[in-house]
């Protein structure tokens, strides 16, 4: 456990001069032994298949830990980079903080309005115009209708799409979509801003503009979490960095140091955190039996009732002769005669 202690020490923002002033600030993100477990795909298919498996074989579920034993604190106004190789759990961690995904174990508290620049254009609908999509996207991200309408011109100006804003966005290029998405996301006054690599779309000029906007947020005291593979950007934005690998925090400390260490580790191939093991769980017998009984009884009632009514209807009609053509015509004639008589009677009546 010495490892964990040293990480906790390093996590405290004492190292960088910049973050010293923020030491007194309250922690806005606090992770305590956070772990996120995903069910392996193999066993999450069909209901009946599950039931059959439960009944006839030793049923087990396989799990994969994407993150485990994550402890850190991020104080108000800090900007922290998450770096690490693919599959290290960076995006999972961001999703946890954005609260779209929930931890399997441990506790994670996030205080303040989170805006995630990883959700560029979430809820965009291709048939709607740029303006309509700004409204939808903004409301989904937590603004009110009035707030968006007040900021509409500002958003459109930032995206530089004035000419096309009333066109359906299905006619936009991918760059234009990215601009629109960023402009909306940047208009949400966030207290915590999550920036994913998705930002790297758009041309150089727009990227520069976006970076400036993010730096503005930082100056206003917004807490920033930044995920990137472009290590050059890390030192530009961030005071601190967390290096993740295989779902664990490998190192934490001042941004520049961690970036250097990461590069050194990559060069020397020393990126191995102890790999988190897969986990297998066997379901208890009573659960298996209960599941099977429920499914069977549900099917039994419906199918049983169906069979009962089909059979009893056949029993009722069993002795009856099939009506042939002549009989049918006779019946029709009788009907017609009756009708004629009726109408005659009606005519005569008055």
């Amino acid at each position: 456990m010495t490892d964990a202690n040293s990480i906790a020490d390093a996590t405290r923002p004492t190292e960088s001069i910049d973050s010293k002033s923020k030491m007194d600030c309250p922690a806005v993100i606090r992770a305590n032994g956070v772990g996120k477990r995903y069910e392996m795909h193999r066993h999450r298919s069909m209901l009946l298949h599950d039931a059959a498996k439960m009944a006839f074989s030793k049923y087990e579920k396989n799990y994969f830990w994407a993150l485990r034993n994550i402890d850190f604190e991020i104080r108000k106004g800090e900007s922290v980079a998450l770096i690490g190789p693919n599959g290290a759990g960076k995006s999972t961690l961001l999703s946890l903080i954005a609260k779209t995904v929930f931890p399997t174990e441990g506790s994670l508290t996030v205080e303040g309005r989170v805006s995630a620049l990883l959700e560029l254009g979430a809820g965009f609908h291709p048939h709607f115009t740029g303006r309509e999509n700004i409204l939808i996207n903004g409301i989904v991200m937590g603004l009110t209708k009035a707030e968006i309408e007040a900021r509409m011109d500002e958003i459109i100006a930032f995206s530089e799409l004035e000419k096309f804003i009333d066109e359906p966005i299905q006619n936009y290029s991918s760059g234009m979509l990215a601009r629109l998405g960023f402009s909306v996301a940047a208009s949400v006054d966030p207290e915590i801003l999550i920036v994913d690599e998705a930002l790297s779309v758009g041309d150089a000029a727009f990227q520069e503009k976006s970076f400036q906007r993010i730096l503005d947020f930082k100056r206003q005291g917004c807490t920033i979490l930044f995920v990137t593979h472009a290590l050059g950007n890390v030192s530009r934005f961030c005071d601190r960095a967390l290096l993740l690998s295989h779902g664990q925090i490998l190192e934490a400390g001042p941004a520049q140091d961690i970036c250097d260490n990461y590069e050194a580790r990559v060069r020397e191939g020393r990126l191995d955190a102890p790999r988190l093991p897969y986990e297998t769980q066997v379901l208890p017998l009573w659960k298996r039996v209960a599941a099977i009984l429920t499914i069977l009884s549900m099917m039994g009632v419906v199918i049983g009732a169906g069979i009962y009514f089909v059979l009893s209807s056949m029993k009722e009609t069993a002795g009856m002769p099939e009506p042939n053509a002549i009989q049918r015509i006779k019946r029709l004639n009788e009907n017609n005669n009756n009708k004629n008589n009726d109408s005659d009677a009606l005519e005569r009546a008055p």
Binding site: S95, T100, L118, A122, G123, M141
Partner: peptide, 11 residues
């Protein structure tokens, strides 16, 4: 249908 939204936005 709203998978994009569900995955990316907390609502």
């Amino acid at each position: 249908d709203n998978a994009q939204l569900v995955k990316k936005v907390a609502f």
